[in-house]
């Protein structure tokens, strides 16, 4: 079974500096398969600089990997022909972070919906084009008569972001990559955008990669989660397991830092890094060793592989070295599949 989109041992290194060359590894040996038969929502979380946006850009073909391949239906993106690109651009859609920047303020919002329809020749007549737009807006819960014909500044951030989801939906994609879609929207309007994404997954069978730094929303809509730390996977698996009982010390730190909306449950004290953590090198061994409260000798030597700690979870930490180590590209084998029958398109 060929995956719809697959990242195979992808590494991305950014080089900068003119005289003193500086290398930044944004993503290291990352593998992920998106199976078209099992549409599910995969949340990717991590702090800023953890490589989540680089991962999105690599999967969207906006960036080429330094090492490894991104494959679309078994074909490496780097060697695809024009008509294959066109198909790829239809199947894989993006929703970006900033609902203000993606609009051209001189055009009415209809413009962002008309362009893909015209580009891909989805409609034969103006009336047909209009009905496509209306249907897409309906699907994201916007009233077309209140949205179409308006300028971007007349709509709220949440509405603008939902129009972007509607635009993605127009093309009937198989996969939507949403990079921080709600981080710039008010808390009270986030729910609707997230609900839209979840409905797309459930009703239209579209896979979604939901990139965020917010564990709460990742937990709310994700089925599976991948926690990135400085370009490597720290923990991955069933979102309920990972968020509720985190195993990797970094995930534990992340979960412990969520400000809970409950004054009676204050932030707990952050554990201090262990003594030996001071000897840890940035470029050798486990990347989290310098900040980890559990660092011990093996962590300083070699980066840990993903240990298969539960049926549906793996953690890259030597604390679980008694468990079976997974090969880099086996990560998705532990993901939970969608339960029940998913409505097919």
């Amino acid at each position: 079974m060929t995956a719809l989109l697959e990242a195979r041992d992808v590494t991305k290194i950014f080089r900068s500096g003119f005289i003193a060359r500086k290398e930044t590894t944004a993503l290291e040996d990352f593998s992920l398969r998106i199976d078209p038969e099992q549409p599910c929502i995969t949340a990717v979380v991590g702090e800023s600089g953890s490589g989540k946006t680089t991962m999105a850009r690599l999967l969207l073909g906006l960036e080429l990997p330094t090492k490894g391949d991104v494959l679309y239906k078994g074909q490496p993106l780097a060697r695809m022909k024009r008509h294959e690109w066109l198909q790829f651009r239809r199947d894989v859609q993006a929703v970006f972070q900033d609902p203000f920047e993606v609009y051209n303020p001189f055009y009415r919002v209809d413009h962002v919906l008309e362009v893909p329809i015209d580009k891909f020749g989805l409609a034969q007549s103006k009336a047909e084009r209009r009905s496509l737009m209306v249907r897409a807006l309906d699907a994201v819960g916007l009233r077309p008569e209140e949205t179409l014909g308006r300028f971007p500044h007349q709509l709220s951030g949440g509405q603008r972001q939902r129009i972007m989801v509607a635009r993605a939906l127009l093309l009937k994609p198989r996969l939507i990559i949403a990079d921080e879609p709600v981080s710039m929207i008010d808390a009270s309007l986030r729910a609707t955008v997230l609900d839209n994404l979840r409905k797309l997954n459930e009703q239209f069978g579209i896979s979604i990669i939901y990139i965020t730094h917010d564990l709460t929303t990742a937990y709310q809509i994700g089925h599976n989660i991948v926690v990135l730390y400085r370009g490597s996977v720290a923990e991955a698996g069933d979102v309920r397991l990972v968020v509720k009982e985190p195993q990797h010390p970094y995930t534990q730190l992340l979960c412990g830092s969520i400000p809970l909306p409950d004054p009676s449950r204050p932030w707990r004290e952050q554990p201090m890094p262990s003594e030996i953590a001071r000897q840890a090198k940035e470029d050798r061994g486990c990347k989290f060793a310098t900040r980890c409260p559990h660092t011990f000798e093996p962590c300083l030597e070699k980066a840990p592989p993903l240990f298969h700690t539960d049926a549906h979870r793996a953690a890259a930490c030597y604390l679980y070295r008694q468990d079976v180590a997974l090969a880099g590209d086996e990560m998705d084998s532990i993901f939970i599949a969608m339960e029940g029958e998913v409505a097919r398109r």
Partner: peptide, 11 residues
């Protein structure tokens, strides 16, 4: 309308 970690999928 707060998303919580208590219950999943309640929006």
């Amino acid at each position: 309308s707060l998303p919580t970690l208590e219950e999943k999928g309640v929006f």
